Computed example of a mutant assay.
Amino acid sequence: MADHSIQGKVVLIAGGAKNLGGLIARDLAAQGAAAVAVHYNSNSSKAEADKTVAALQELGAKAVALQADLTRAGAVEKLFADAVAAVGKPDIAINTVGKVLKKPMVEISEAEYDEMMAVNAKSAFFFIKEAGRHLNDNGKICTIVTSLLGAFTPFYAAYAGGKAPVEHFTRAAAKELGERGISVTAVGPGPMDTPFFYPAEGQDAVNYHKTAAALSPFSKTGLTDIEDVVPFIRHLVSDGWWITGQTLLINGGYTTK
């Protein structure tokens, strides 16, 4: 029977420098991951990536930071090749990359649309593709999407619309890679208390989101805290391997399907 523990496994995390990705990296290292490749997008995130790498090394994991613009297929291919060269073939590949745009459809430009689709859909497609090519058998692939996939709401057409294709990428990859024992999942957190959330929202919207989840009164911020998402990621990439082809909304009762 396959070993689905995290102990001794090699991990690649896209967007792993900070926030949710950085916490996932630290959590998996604390659970015994042997090596973690931490991807970051641009020079503005390099210091955070280096800080995360240092924290992982303190936890006993081999760690490396790798920069790439994942909106280009060739860059995703190179990221996996560089990760394999640096830390070995991954057993676990997690993609936390995303970009938020809150704007009425009638105001969204073609350039904005193209950027949102490139960051949220294209990068996810090629990340899953390269994970399928490079992961060891019995590996795990997980993509972060959004709980807005279960919402009936205005202004997020380009963001939620860009994440929506990942649900089918996940289903298709789960079917195609299942014969190798690879599970493929997506996780849609609710609005998260991170620096990415607040610039996209006005104060009235922030106040609404902080009270919108059924369990908001029991959250320290009212929002989805990254600490509440990480245990589900840990489960999906280990003992929860039997869940595949699914999108799980982790949001304290913010939305459902």
Rank of each mutant, 00 (worst) to 15 (best):
R133N: 14
R180H: 14
G190M: 03
A164L: 13
I182L: 07
F196S: 07
L249Y: 05
V166N: 06
G139R: 02
F196Q: 03
V206L: 14
A213R: 00
T143D: 13
S216H: 04
K175Q: 11
G150S: 13
V206T: 07
S216V: 03
L223S: 05
L236S: 05
E130Q: 13
L249A: 04
W242H: 13
F197Y: 12
I226F: 01
Q246F: 07
G161I: 06
G161W: 02
P191Q: 01
I182F: 09
I233N: 00
L149D: 12
G132S: 09
R133T: 13
G240Q: 04
S183G: 08
A131R: 02
G240E: 04
P217Q: 09
I182V: 15
F196M: 11
S147N: 09
D225F: 10
F127A: 07
R180P: 14
L215R: 01
L149M: 13
L149R: 07
A173H: 03
T170C: 08
E179C: 15
A174V: 08
G150F: 07
T185G: 05
R171D: 11
T170R: 00
D137Q: 12
A157Y: 04
K210W: 06
Q246G: 05
F197I: 07
M192L: 10
N138V: 08
R180D: 10
I250S: 08
V184H: 00
P195N: 12
T153R: 12
D137G: 11
D193N: 15
P217M: 03
G240P: 05
D137S: 10
I141A: 04
